[in-house]
């Protein structure tokens, strides 16, 4: 009977270790997923805002066609 209890105790101990390890892994995977998503969104949002209005060439072209 003692041997049986010892065996059960070992199985319980091992299953707890496996359970905790699995939980840690999944928690880490979630953190990684979240980090990846946030990083991806930050990269998308980082789209450069071009300040230049591009109207210099418009003024030049207007001068050319209106001066004819």
């Amino acid at each position: 009977m003692r041997k049986l209890f010892a065996l059960l105790a070992i199985i319980l101990f091992l299953s707890l270790i496996v359970g905790c390890g699995s939980t840690d892994y999944k928690a880490q995977a979630q953190v990684n997923d979240t980090t990846t998503t946030v990083t991806q969104q930050a990269a998308e949002n980082k789209m450069n805002v071009t300040i230049d209005d591009g109207l210099d060439s418009a003024l030049q072209e207007l001068d050319i066609v209106d001066s004819q």
């Binding site: 199985i11 319980l12 299953s15 496996v18 359970g19 390890g21 699995s22 999944k26």
Partner: peptide, 12 residues
Amino acid sequence: IFSGLVYAAVGP
């Protein structure tokens, strides 16, 4: 034991 095994397999 079974609870531990199920928790290990499924997780949170």
